[in-house]
Amino acid sequence: MIKLITLFILSSIFVGNSQEIDSLKILTQNEWKLSHWFQNDTVCFLPKKKLDTIYEGLTEAQVLKKKKKYIFSERIRFKKNGVISYVNNLFCPVGESIKRAHSFTLDNNVITIDFETIKWPWKENKMIREKKRFKVLELNSNKFKIIKCQ
């Protein structure tokens, strides 16, 4: 009986600590905020909070400031079907590149992003489509950190 109890305790210790993490679920459950991620080698995505629409008791300037903080930024949402929803609302677009993200694949701790960019001035340059691979360094509900693969 003691052997059976010891075996049960040891097996529960080993089985209880092994917990499978669903990376795709963590990645797709949030809308992420980021900055200039196509140009950087290491990128850290943070969860984007939903717009606070409680404007009661605020002045018009405070309401505009609150809306501006949410609207002008880069945001990305990874969907379960492999599609990316990417938005970058710029306050002043002069000198910025326009980006369009199309799809992603997450395989073996590597995320591959299919996207297009066009550099400023937009009328003089053409859209360049490419895929970039990033190794996932950290992925949880509070942070998604990746580094560009060589």
Rank of each mutant, 00 (worst) to 15 (best):
I54L: 12
R100I: 09
L24C: 06
K25A: 14
T112K: 10
V94H: 14
T59D: 03
K143I: 09
Q150V: 12
S11W: 03
N108S: 14
K33D: 01
I111C: 00
V87C: 15
E31N: 08
L51F: 06
M127A: 08
S18C: 11
W32A: 00
V15A: 10
S35T: 08
C149P: 15
D22Y: 10
K132S: 14
S103P: 06
K131E: 01
Q29D: 05
S35H: 13
E116I: 05
K143E: 10
D22F: 04
I113Q: 00
L34K: 14
F134E: 00
K123E: 07
K119N: 10
P47E: 01
I128F: 03
K50Y: 07
D107T: 09
E20Q: 07
D114P: 13
K66G: 06
W120C: 13
H102R: 08
K131C: 02
K69F: 04
F45Y: 01
V63N: 07
E130M: 13
D41Q: 09
N89C: 14
S141R: 13
I54Y: 05
L7Q: 06
D114R: 03
G16E: 00
T53D: 10
S12C: 15
N142Q: 15
E56F: 15
M127F: 12
Y70N: 13
Y86R: 02
K99Q: 13
V15H: 03
I9G: 11
P121L: 15
R77P: 03
S97E: 10
N125T: 05
E96G: 09
G16S: 07
E31H: 04
A61I: 14
S141H: 05
I146D: 01
A101S: 15
Q62E: 11
K48F: 03
K66W: 03
Y70C: 03
I76E: 00
V94D: 15
